[in-house]
Amino acid sequence: MTKTAALDRFDHALLALVQQDNQTPARLLAEQVGLSESAVLRRLRRLRAEGVIIADKAVVRPAALGLPLTLHVLVSLERESAAELDAFIRKTRSRPEVRQAWYVTGETDFVLLLQLPDMEAYDRFAREVFHDDPNVKAFRTIVAMREIVGPADARPLAAMA
């Protein structure tokens, strides 16, 4: 089970701000949360060291990179032994088309989020990853027509805690 970090109101305020823009200078963060710049920097270092902040990344619009097609694929496996799960996870992680993936409960075993240039690329992906794998029992594809809430405009997690 994942350990929950002990966060105070300043930590929550900082997290909400850096989730909106992690390039905000420490002095501006300090003004907004009511701490000194050095206190903000110490807290951010601690939040990174404790694994609360796990990455600082830019959010890129996939269509700008020639990947306008977003697909969610629900995958069911025939067998779920540890070795077979690990093999499917390794294969999934090795594919650049897979932007996110979850091992889930219920009728489906995995949910994959794919970014691709077109349906032809998805056909190749499906043949290589699903059709050629004897342990893939079934997969169902959901085509995203339009993004409603994406990474760039999602509410900060700190605001939900």
Rank of each mutant, 00 (worst) to 15 (best):
T2L: 14
K3Q: 11
K3T: 11
T4H: 15
T4D: 14
A5K: 04
A5L: 06
A5H: 09
A6G: 12
L7W: 08
L7M: 10
D8V: 12
R9I: 09
R9V: 11
R9A: 14
R9M: 07
R9Y: 10
R9W: 10
A13D: 10
L14P: 03
L17H: 14
Q23K: 11
P25V: 10
A26M: 02
L29I: 06
L29D: 01
A30Y: 03
E31A: 14
V33C: 01
G34M: 08
G34E: 10
L35R: 11
L35T: 06
L35W: 06
E37Y: 01
S38R: 13
V40Y: 03
V40T: 04
L41A: 04
L41H: 02
R42L: 12
R43N: 10
R45S: 11
R46C: 12
L47N: 03
L47K: 04
R48M: 12
A49C: 00
A49F: 01
A49S: 03
A49N: 02
V52Y: 07
V52P: 03
I54E: 06
A55T: 11
D56I: 05
R61K: 08
R61M: 08
P62G: 07
A63T: 09
A63R: 13
A64S: 12
A64D: 15
G66P: 04
L67S: 03
L67G: 01
L71Y: 07
V73D: 03
V73W: 05
V73N: 01
L74Y: 14
L74G: 05
S76P: 08
L77H: 06
L77N: 03
E78T: 13
R79L: 13
S81M: 10
S81K: 15
S81D: 15
S81R: 15
A82E: 07
A83Q: 15
E84W: 09
L85R: 11
A87S: 15
F88I: 13
F88M: 13
I89N: 09
I89Y: 07
T92I: 03
T92G: 05
T92P: 02
R95C: 08
R95F: 01
R95L: 06
P96V: 02
E97K: 00
V98L: 00
W102N: 11
T105A: 15
T105H: 14
V111S: 07
L112D: 01
L113Y: 01
L114K: 01
L114D: 02
D118P: 02
M119Y: 08
A121N: 01
Y122C: 04
Y122Q: 03
D123K: 14
D123T: 14
R124D: 12
F125C: 02
A126M: 02
R127I: 09
R127D: 06
E128P: 00
V129F: 01
H131Q: 14
D133G: 05
P134I: 05
V136C: 00
V136M: 01
R140T: 07
I142T: 06
V143P: 02
V143N: 04
V149T: 09
G150I: 05
G150H: 10
P151Y: 03
P151C: 00
A152T: 15
D153T: 12
A154H: 11
R155D: 13
P156G: 11
P156E: 13
L157Q: 10
A158Q: 07
A158V: 08
A158W: 06
A159T: 11
M160V: 05
M160T: 03
A161Y: 15
A161L: 15
